[in-house]
Amino acid sequence: MATVDRVKQPLLSFSNALVVLGAALMLVDVYLIFMVAPTDAVLGNIQRVFYFHVPMAIMSFLAFFVVFIASILYLIKRDQKWDRLAHAAAEVGVVFVTLALITGIIWARPVWGVWWTWEPRLTTTLILWLIYVAYLMIRAYAPNRTQGALYAAVVGIVGFVDVPIVYYSVQWWRSIHPSAVVGPLAESGALEPVMQGILLFSFLAFLVLFLYLVVERMALRGLEDQVRLLKFSLHRTGR
């Protein structure tokens, strides 16, 4: 009979430490953003969305870079842990990039006057979203888990290599079709030192949140794999 380790949950585990740290940082971050950060002279209160938007966008890029590295390592070493890491990072990355797109749209409407514009960074982010949604779809629709992992790794590699080319092509394309929508890019302007400090703090808070989500998702994937193994061995013993 197959024996499976009981799930141990010590009080001082890595993920518990992350959740406490993350919650504390996030509370302080929200306080800093709404109580301490000065209101932008030109953009007004809407500028505060920027402290959520930029860290989430950067964390999603980090996530997709992790997917790329983990996919290569999985194809070479065939160790399940790399597949788990790639899967977890891709799911968290899709959530973050979705939120970054939504917060960007909320920001764009009052500042640019439109919900959406085909600006290079926006377009590239949208394509990124599409590629990693396809990544998760191929995992779900594959005939079995092993093949799903292989196909997903291939999409994770090809998709990441493609991103810089998408960026350059959209940039050149835009320079040919100038748009009437020209908005002040908040991130290109010189930031107040206070704003810069809060932005850095926000990065830290979202980095901890990102790490926590990836660690938890990997652990959940591990449990899912164990359950599948148990079900399989039950079938084998004919019960």
Binding site: I127, L130, A134, Y141, A142, V155, G159, D162, Y168
Partner: peptide, 27 residues
Amino acid sequence: AIAVQTRSREIMLPVLFFPIILPVIIG
């Protein structure tokens, strides 16, 4: 080669293919 192995193979090829090939289409 990937899409043909999956369920819903007709939809998986465009879903995978078009985002990746976008620079070629633009160019």
